[in-house]
Amino acid sequence: MSTQVSLEERFQARIDAEQKIEPKDWMPEAYRKTLIRQISQHAHSEVVGMLPEGNWITRAPSLRRKVALLAKIQDEAGHGLYLYSAAETLGISREELYNELLSGKAKYSSIFNYPTLTWADMGAVGWLVDGAAIMNQVALCKCSYGPYARAMVRVCKEESFHQRQGFELLLTLSKGTPEQHAMAQDAINRWWWPSMMMFGPNDSDSPHSAQSMRWKIKQKFVDMIAEQIKVLNMTLPDPDLRWNEERGHYDFGTIDWTEFNEVLKGNGPCNRERLAARRKAWEEGAWVREAAMAHAAKRQQSV
């Protein structure tokens, strides 16, 4: 028992000293479980997030845009891959993680349960969704678990490139025909509130430090987007959005939490479609994975 206490104390001391915890280090079971849940949820979000954008690969309006979109989705697959690998260092297999996603036990970001209706959505997703994701994730580059922190450094770099790409796409549409401008405005109207929901529910009365941190990040996001929307010559669908001289920040309206909770419960526009697509890919790929394993096993025998 006393060694147990000292292990925990040593662990805590390393955390306090802001040293990284590595896969082979001792860690409390609760720490391991929380990390697996958080990292796998993040990995699942990357992989499910490939679907709404994949919807537009074959219909991208130019070869340049098509290549950029393919590369972006490939980045997301790459993020999924290193995040799954980071989770695997905690003693869980990719297959187990997948099964948790496909059975609905593990969650992924609710944002991907919204549909991508037009090409302009590729811009709005990049600018708003990736923008909100970076704000949330940048702190993770400094998190205590080494493999996760290192994966996040790369993820954040690529995400910020995606965000600029999304903005550029919207800017092009904004300067295009009236129809293109209207299409971009419509995409922004549809993606604004779901992006705001990515910062999670907040209770302004709560003194909880994590929540007040999240509130600050959300304010930073609003301040940034409220300025950039002017460059796009468009508007955000929030009648309460206005500059507050006293606070030095933008005021903004309240989120429709009923909608948020419904999407969370699985009643969003695309919850079923997204999971069905993942399940289909996994099930239809089973024979391929089995064949690869069988071939590898035969090769090993013949060596």
């Binding site: 690969i57 074959t58 490939q74 790459g78 890919a281 790929g285 391929v288 994975r289």
Partner: peptide, 15 residues
């Protein structure tokens, strides 16, 4: 091949 993106039998194959 682009049609496969996001629907491959495994993440590595997809990429």
């Amino acid at each position: 091949l682009g049609e496969w993106c996001g629907h491959g039998p495994e993440l590595e194959i997809d990429m």
